[in-house]
Design a protein around this nucleic acid. Structure first.
Length: 1183
RNA sequence: UGAUCUGUAGCUCAACGGUUAGAGCAACUGCCUUAUACGCAGCAGGCUACCGGUUCAAAUCCGGUCAGAUCAACCA
């Protein structure tokens, strides 16, 4: 144990942190903080895995601070908080980074670079900055287990993911389906939503749009339309009008969708192009877009071609629901769908009347909504555009033409225009015009994207929607609005989760099928979904000889065996069939000798083993399982033999969000290992990430938790906002406004940075990061507290205070000690409440204001003398104990947010006092409030003391009398006895603080003091309601007599509009505004008057104090020790003579002088100035 | 385009529907200090983004508009 408190010259947070870090490592502080809670209730935390392929930024510091402080707080509350770290290692950002590094594009992968080499590059690249991340983690004081993190590319991790997928598969929640996805014909590839959201992808374009006319077919359900029309023209035809911005999708039209509750009209008019009489159906709300007001009910007979005003007339109005299933003639009858019942009117909830006609042209192949509603009504599908983006040959005169100018052909003619012209000519277009809107473009080719039907695997999240919504209600969201708003909304509008990614570096989908990779028509395919690695046993692995290092079966004989079995199937078949399907093993062997082609190529080439030309074929056994890497390309080379049919893996990878969403299970390699560990750690008590994860990690965790375990995955989730630069702009490399976290930590230290990030704004508000804010925190909080500690250390060392004396009972301590202890306990209560509520911002701010306003600038300032004057007796010990307790408690309160400084402070104190056995504050328990120490009255009167002092100081300033000049008295009018008693208890304090001799109270104030009355709106408002204004006016108009009457009787009857309204004393606030003849100041209801008469005695005392002040400065400038005794000579000045004589003792005591002499003249010495008089003093240290 | 969040002093943030919207930072003027810290007092600085509504009373509640941010997207 140290005998002295360490004293410091200057606060150096970064240095403190380096020392503490070393200390933590030495005592294994983090590991210990977990192990000492062995057996305690666990508090489960999940670490959202960061991706280490980018440098960490300052925004990572905020969310990690949040996570860390909660975990530390919970540990200090007695929970055991394990924190397994993790790395997110798959996914597009990694791949794009590698592509960029290698200077290649997606197309090159598998061609100029093997998938294997490419994935090898990803594997190393993804952890490129792991060291940097680890370094940041350490330096910022984030306690997380970095030694055994989960890594998403790990085989075990992937195996758990496979298990999850197979569970979903078993529950029929995993399925393959066509989905309409963004597709770039120019690049020949589907696009991820990420790619579609790259800046500049949505471009403003001008497209030719057309309102096409679909001819209704007369039948029972459409009779009501025709009836109305037939009254006017016996041969009337009725048309549905539908608008499209993509006329090229019209040949693929199979339906028209209307809103069930939208009102539609049948309108009689003329076609503006052909001028033929017409009966058309469209939404009532949109009539104004197509018909001029003046034409309504116009004269049809008088209409001539080319007339500007076209007459029109509403024949009937009806709901969209009445149109359901009415049939119409195909608009452009080039091709019919193979199945389904097309060309009907459908109902869809996505229809609006914001633009178009309220009738939506529906081509299931080219729109997600269209597809969905098409499925519902089984209208089939027509995909008349190929993957290059051109019409199929069957599409008549348009066959073979590109629907957009994908080849940058200068001669390109817009198909949309030609289709529109054709429709115009055929009397099938009502309006053709250019329309400007935004449309997504391929970021690579800059060409417009098509929505196109592509195969994909889905998780049927919609099946679990109800449950997910229900479970979400039990989650504690911070802030709550994110849970109900952004997240709740997202759940309500959920669609099935598209898992498929056509990439290379990721978790492979563990589904094998008996159909070749690119083969269509999967009808009758056999498929299986693996749920464990060992289910691969028995699969055949095709590899090049040097790729598989295991000691394997005789591959050749295995191959022969398989080929023989295969051929046996065709034993009884025709010769042609045998020739076509059986395999010549010798040919295969020959090819094996020469070529190196992977199995994927074979599979693509129709998977006949005759074309099998790769090197080796082995069957996987238990022994060789260990050598299987669960990534591409190896998994693609694994093939199952299903009764002679081969099963190939579905080529897709799984969305990386699945990786992270399954981390509660996969981090433990569940269910293969750690079953108990998992049971104890699911669900999480707490997670925290940025709001941008709402529909990412938060969603995938929730979805999988619900679908796999019928449970939430987390109980509390804190979503923090973004960190913006000081101008409110998102930080990005492009703008160069990234704040380097290392430089910040180096310069200001982690604690100041953490504190700033936590207290500046609520974590969920996006915050503008300004380095000056950190500087301020450092100065205001840490410097202040540091100085308070240093002040304590300095005197405690002199007095050898080590907290060895018995604890002085609170009731025996002076008022001010009890006050700060009371406040301290209030603080403990508040801070605990805030932390429990996941409101660290409020907690930090409360601590900050305690340190700054109360501890340093009131308690210490007022108690200074107690520390350096007088005997080492109860009062002094009480002061030391009080201050010590404040500092120690603060260290514990601050520990979650500023772990370094807190431990430093705690350590410094504890090393001397040895009060606690713990080697770190982080092993301590969080302080709990001592309710009995809280004294509301005491806190109130200290507030009064502070207010009164502040008022007196402002009065002094007004009349220009320095505080050092003592004054006789102050005068305080008091409304009631309680206030008077309160002030009396703290009057000594006020007197010394504002340097006055006495306080007088005015209780009988009537007639003497000028008073002002104000209505208390809050208490009156409820009673008076609408009469409030009149009441307030009446009260403001009170005379002094009225006020006196109210004060005397406690009640007053107001006369308002012949109504008598009683008011109570509590309904108003009465302020003593002025005391005639005195200098007065007010704050709220408090009034203080100051006697500014300076008697000769007071003047002497003031001068004496001035002199003390000057000599103290000399002592300090001369570098005397605090305890050095001195001798002083002063050159006499007449007006100061009496002061020096009368206050000689006082001065000597204050300046530790053995003698203070007046001499006529001084040659040497220092010139000083007191109240505009200059003279010399000589100060000598007594040797 | 939509959903969500945010918009208060030059800057960062406060303000149970209730008196004249407050603090800190920064600038200026003083004061206090045997704590290299700080504080106190004064002086400035505001159409609480804008427009409406509810209410005796709105920065606060409700609509709408605008701006910024995030996420999402099938937008005819």
């Amino acid at each position: 144990m140290a005998s002295k408190y360490q004293e410091y010259n200057q606060l150096n947070l970064p240095q403190i942190e380096k020392d503490i870090l070393a200390h933590w490592e030495e005592i294994q502080a983090f590991e210990k903080s977990v192990s000492i809670r062995e057996g305690a209730t666990p508090f489960v935390f999940y670490e959202g895995p960061p991706s280490a392929n980018g440098m960490p930024g300052i925004h990572h510091v905020i969310s990690r601070t949040l996570k860390d402080l909660v975990c530390r707080y919970k540990t200090m509350n007695g929970f055991q908080v394990k924190r397994k770290g993790g790395w997110d290692t798959h996914g597009l950002p990694v791949e794009l980074g590698v592509e960029k590094m290698l200077g290649i594009t997606k197309e090159a992968i598998g061609k100029t670079i093997s998938i294997e080499d490419y994935n090898k590059a990803c594997r190393t690249e993804v952890l490129k900055f792991k060291d940097k991340w680890d370094d940041l983690t350490r330096k910022m004081g984030y306690w997380v287990d970095l030694k055994s993190p989960y890594i998403t590319f790990d085989n075990n991790y992937i195996e758990s993911l496979w298990w999850c997928l197979s569970e979903l598969y078993k529950k029929n929640l995993l399925y393959k389906s066509v989905s309409i996805q963004p597709y770039s014909p120019a690049a020949g590839t589907g696009l991820s939503s990420h790619e579609l959201n790259m800046p500049g992808c949505y471009k403003e374009v001008k497209d030719t749009t057309v309102v096409a006319m679909f001819k209704a077919i007369e039948a029972d359900n459409s009779a009501f339309l025709f009836e109305a029309a037939r009254k006017i023209a016996a041969d009337a035809e009725v048309f549905f009008m539908a608008w499209t911005t993509t006329p090229w999708t019209l040949p693929s039209n199979l339906g028209l969708t209307v809103g069930a509750n939208i009102e539609y009209t049948l309108v009689r008019t003329f076609n503006p192009y052909t001028h033929l009489p017409q009966f058309v159906v469209m939404a009532k709300d949109l009539l104004g877009k197509y018909f001029k007001q003046e034409g309504e009910d116009g004269d049809f007979a008088a209409y001539n071609e080319g007339d500007k005003i076209i007459p029109w007339q509403i024949l009937s109005v009806f709901k969209g629901s009445q149109l359901e299933n009415i049939r119409y003639e195909q608009l452009l009858p080039y091709v019919q769908p193979e199945s389904g019942d097309p060309f009907r009117v459908l109902l869809g909830d996505f229809v609006t009347t914001e633009d178009g006609t309220g009738i939506v042209h529906t081509a299931p192949a080219f729109g997600a909504d269209d597809y969905r509603v098409g499925q519902k009504y089984d209208i089939g599908i027509l995909t008349l555009v190929d993957r290059q983006g051109k019409f199929l040959d069957e599409v008549g005169e348009f066959g073979g033409r590109y629907v957009k100018n994908y080849k940058s052909d200068p001669e390109y003619k817009d198909v949309d225009v030609d289709i529109s012209v054709k429709l115009k000519k055929e009397n099938r277009a009502f309006k053709v015009e250019k329309y400007e809107h935004t449309y997504p473009h391929c970021w690579r080719t800059d060409k417009p994207v098509l929505y196109y039907p592509l195969d994909a695997w889905f998780i049927r999240t919609t099946a679990a929607k109800e449950k997910m919504v229900e479970l979400n209600k039990t989650i504690n969201w911070k802030p709550a609005t994110t849970g109900t708003g952004r997240f709740g909304n997202w759940l309500e509008n959920m669609v099935d989760w598209n898992l498929s990614r056509s990439r290379f570096w990721g978790t492979p989908l563990p589904v094998w099928r008996t159909v070749a990779v690119k083969e269509d028509s999967p009808e009758g395919a056999v498929q299986k979904c693996l749920g464990a690695k060992n289910e691969l046993v028995g699969a055949l692995l095709f590899v090049k000889k040097d790729e598989f290092k295991a000691d394997v079966l005789d591959a050749d004989s295995e191959l022969s065996k398989r080929v023989a079995a295969h051929n046996a199937q065709y034993a009884g078949k025709s010769k042609e069939e045998q020739e076509l399907f059986t395999i010549n093993i010798d040919k295969v062997r020959a090819k094996i000798q020469k070529e190196e082609i992977t199995l994927v190529d074979v599979a693509l080439a129709n998977f006949y083993l005759t074309d099998l030309v790769s090197g080796y074929c082995v069957a996987i056994t238990e022994e060789t399982l260990a050598d299987i890497d669960l990534h591409k390309p190896m998994v693609d080379n694994l093939i199952f033999d299903h009764e002679g049919q081969l099963m190939y893996r579905e080529p897709d990878l799984v969305d990386v969000w699945f990786d992270s969403g399954a981390m509660p299970y996969a981090q433990w390699h569940y269910p293969f290992d750690n079953k108990e560990e998992f049971a104890k750690s699911f669900p999480a008590d707490f997670i925290a990430e940025g709001v941008d994860q709402t529909r990412g990690w938060f969603y995938t965790l929730h979805a999988l938790g619900t679908m796999l375990f019928d449970n939430v995955a987390y109980k509390t989730v804190v979503s923090n906002g973004l960190v913006l630069d000081k101008n409110g702009v998102k930080m990005s490399k492009r703008l160069g406004n990234i704040v380097d976290p290392f430089a910040t930590l180096e310069q200001f230290g982690a604690d100041a940075t953490r504190w700033y990030l936590v207290t500046n704004a609520s974590p969920w508000d996006s915050m503008k990061f300004d380095i000056d804010g950190i500087r301020e925190v450092q100065r205001k909080l840490f410097s202040t507290l540091y100085n308070t500690y240093n002040f304590f250390a300095m005197y405690a060392n002199l007095d050898k205070f080590t907290f060895s004396e018995a604890y002085v009972p609170l009731e025996e301590r002076p008022e001010i000690d009890r006050w700060i202890i009371s406040l301290l306990n209030t603080l403990v209560k508040d801070v605990t409440g805030y932390f429990d509520d996941y409101e660290p911002t409020q907690a930090g701010r409360a601590i900050q204001s305690f340190v700054d306003e109360h501890l340093s600038n009131w308690y210490v300032r007022l108690c200074r003398r107690r520390f350096w004057k007088g005997e080492y007796a109860q009062d002094k010990i009480s002061a030391y104990q009080t201050l010590y307790e404040c500092l120690e408690t603060l260290a514990r309160l601050m520990a979650p947010v500023s772990p370094f400084f807190a431990d430093w402070l705690f350590g410094n104190l504890n090393k001397v006092s040895g009060r606690h056995a713990e080697a770190s504050v982080h092993h301590m328990l969080f302080p709990s409030e001592v309710t009995t120490a809280i004294d509301a009255d005491l806190e109130e009167r200290m507030q009064l003391a502070q207010d009164i002092s502040s008022l007196v100081l402002s009065l002094r300033k007004k009349v220009n009398i320095k505080v050092r000049q003592p004054l006789q008295k102050i005068l305080i009018p008091v409304q009631n006895l309680h206030i008077k008693e309160q002030i009396e208890k703290i009057q000594d304090l006020i007197k010394s603080e504002v340097n006055v001799k006495g306080i007088e109270y005015l209780t009988e104030t009537e007639g003497f003091i000028k008073k002002k009355i104000k209505p208390n709106y809050k208490s009156l408002g409820g009673k008076m309601g609408a009469k409030m204004k009149a009441v307030a006016a009446a009260i403001s108009a009170f005379s002094a007599a009225d006020i006196a009457s109210l004060e005397r009787n406690g009640e007053f009857i107001l006369q308002i509009d012949d109504e008598q309204l009683p008011i109570q004393l509590s309904d108003v606030e009465i302020i003593s505004e002025d005391i005639p003849g005195w200098t007065v100041a007010n704050k709220g209801a408090l009034t203080v008057a100051l006697d500014i008469t300076i008697t000769p005695e007071l003047l002497d005392e003031g001068n004496a104090r001035e002199l003390v002040n000057r000599i103290q400065k000399i002592r300090k400038d001369s570098d005397f020790e605090l305890t050095d005794r001195i001798q002083v000579k002063v050159a006499v000045i007449e007006s100061l003579k009496s002061a020096i004589i009368n206050y000689n003792d006082y001065i000597c005591t204050e300046i530790l002088a053995d003698s203070l002499e007046l001499v006529p003249e001084l040659q040497d010495g220092i010139e000083i100035e007191v109240n505009d008089l200059t003279f010399n003093v000589l100060v000598n240290k007594k040797s």
